[in-house]
Design a protein around this nucleic acid. Structure first.
Length: 116
DNA sequence: AAGTTGACCCCGA
DNA sequence: TTCGGGGCCAACT
């Protein structure tokens, strides 16, 4: 096995989870952290997103917002409006940097992935 | 090796 | 209601 792994398993787990978010849905950092068994490590989820550019796979980071449904990570995209535009493209309405009807579009990995 | 940072979250004033 | 501070934990410098 070659040393292809450049990041912790936690990061990879986050990326894999984020990839499971359906199109047109959103979730929060805390929800992912909780799903991964680290409810106190929500900040690490954001950190993993920051490092997602290093991932070999594409990570739909735009589908991850904070618990308020606010696009807190928009400033980390190449373009300031990229996150918002991607969400709008998927049918997620965004207004004033926050997802409209966030609770309605919220996708909980705990709920959706725990039982198949 | 030790201190700082951060795409968060919770709570009190 | 808005604002500020503390906790959290792994990566980064």
């Amino acid at each position: 096995m070659s040393d292809v792994k450049k990041h912790s398993d936690f990061f990879e787990s986050v990326w894999l989870t984020v990839r499971e978010i359906p199109r047109g849905r959103v979730t929060s950092y805390g929800a992912i952290a909780k799903y991964l068994g680290a409810p106190r490590s929500s900040r690490m989820v954001g950190y993993a997103m920051n490092a997602s550019h290093s991932a070999s796979v594409e990570v739909p980071a735009h589908r991850v917002v904070n618990r308020n449904g606010v696009l807190t990570g928009k400033h980390h995209f190449p373009d300031l409006l990229e996150m918002e535009q991607k969400l709008e493209k998927e049918g997620v309405r965004v207004e004033d940097d926050k997802v409209i009807e966030f609770e309605k579009l919220f996708w909980d990995p705990m709920k959706e992935l725990s039982m198949e």
